[in-house]
Every structure is written in C-alpha cells, then in structure tokens.
Simulated scan of single mutants.
Amino acid sequence: MKFSREKSAGYLTNWAARLFAKAIDRRLKELGLSSGQLPVFFALGDGGAMSQKALTEIAAIEQPTMAATLSRMERDGIVARVPNPEDGRSALFSLTPSAMKKALDVRAAIAAVNADALEGLEGPDREAFLAMLRGVIANLENRLNDQP
C-alpha cells in the first residue's frame, strides 16, 4: 500500500504548521523574536509573571525545551527572571518593558500571516475549518491523556 501525503491529515497539518512557522518567523525576525517564543510571549502578554512550570503547562511543551527557550529569551532581553516570593526554589518570568512595547507589532504580524493563510476561506468556511482543527486537536489531546 502506497502512502499518499495528499490524503494524510497528519502530513498536511505538519506541512501547514511548518509553513506557518516559516512565514511568522520571517515577519518576527525584524522584531527580534521567533515563532518558538510565541507561546511564552502570549502567556505573559498581559503583563503578568509566571513560573517555568506554569509556562510549560500552558505551552504544552517539554520542560527542557521551555528551559532553553526562556534562557534564550532572557539573554535577548525579552523576558526577565525574578525570584518567586512564594517559593524560593523557583523563579517567575515576565516580559521586559521593551518586549511589551512589541506586543502590537507581534499581534499584527500573526494576524497578517493568518490572513494570508486563510485567504479564500470566508465566513462559514473559515469558521468550519477552525472548528474542525479544534476538533482534531481535542481528539488527539484526549487520546494522549488516556494513555500512560
């Protein structure tokens, strides 16, 4: 049986995700950000502070990946780390003032890439597409949460 990429939901979704990341990275480069930093950027975008553990859960990525991401973001002046007053063993991360100033530009870049990607899908078609994606995500999350 021959594998057909054009009929594989996993392959097509992965391909679309790689193209989204490439397009977003192109727009974010001038802001000193990358698509891999967006989950942290958006989680902290309201001006709050969070622990690495909380950010890992929100972003749904592995702890070592989050640690490396936060280290790079701190090095680049995007996040600041302060001791957690409630738990001396952990730190809290927040966006720096200069990163907060970039928030509107980041949102505009994301909106532009989404508009490009969804061009030609209007109204009900766009809503149906997004609903189907949410359904696929929910199915996969449920299956993964059911397994040890």
Rank of each mutant, 00 (worst) to 15 (best):
A131Y: 00
L19S: 11
A54K: 13
F20W: 02
T13R: 07
D25P: 12
T69I: 09
A138K: 06
N139M: 02
S98F: 02
R126E: 05
Q63D: 15
A131D: 06
K101I: 04
L121N: 08
E57L: 02
I137E: 06
P83H: 09
V40K: 07
A128N: 10
V136Y: 03
L44D: 05
F42N: 03
N145D: 10
N14R: 05
K101T: 08
F3Y: 07
V82G: 14
S51K: 03
E6Y: 05
A60E: 05
L33P: 08
P97W: 02
S71L: 06
S4T: 07
A68C: 05
P85K: 12
G36K: 06
E57F: 01
R5K: 14
A108W: 00
P64C: 10
A91I: 01
S71H: 08
S34T: 10
A138L: 03
P39F: 01
A68D: 06
M73I: 10
T13D: 03
I61H: 10
T96D: 11
F41A: 09
L70M: 12
F3P: 15
R5W: 02
F129W: 06
L70H: 12
A60M: 05
A131L: 05
E127L: 13
R126T: 08
G45W: 00
G120C: 08
A21K: 12
L92D: 04
T69M: 07
E74N: 07
D76W: 03
T69C: 13
A115W: 00
D116R: 15
A60Y: 00
P85T: 13
K101N: 09
I58H: 06
A128Q: 10
S8R: 11
K2P: 15
E74I: 01
K101A: 15
F129L: 15
P39R: 12
D146V: 01
A49Q: 12
L38W: 01
R27E: 09
A108L: 01
K101G: 13
G10R: 04
L130V: 15
S98I: 05
Q63I: 11
E141V: 13
L31A: 14
L144N: 14
A67K: 15
L38I: 04
I78R: 11
P97K: 13
A21N: 10
T56I: 00
S51L: 01
P39T: 10
L70E: 11
R72E: 06
D105H: 03
E119M: 04
G123M: 00
A99C: 12
K2C: 03
G123E: 02
R81Q: 13
M132L: 11
N142Q: 06
R107W: 00
R75C: 13
S4F: 02
K53Y: 02
Q37N: 04
Y11K: 13
M73P: 12
G10S: 08
A49P: 10
A23S: 10
A23F: 00
A68L: 05
P148Q: 12
T96G: 15
M50E: 13
A112C: 04
I24M: 10
A23K: 06
A54I: 02
P83E: 11
Q147F: 02
I61A: 12
I110D: 03
R107L: 04
L130F: 06
R27H: 04
E141H: 07
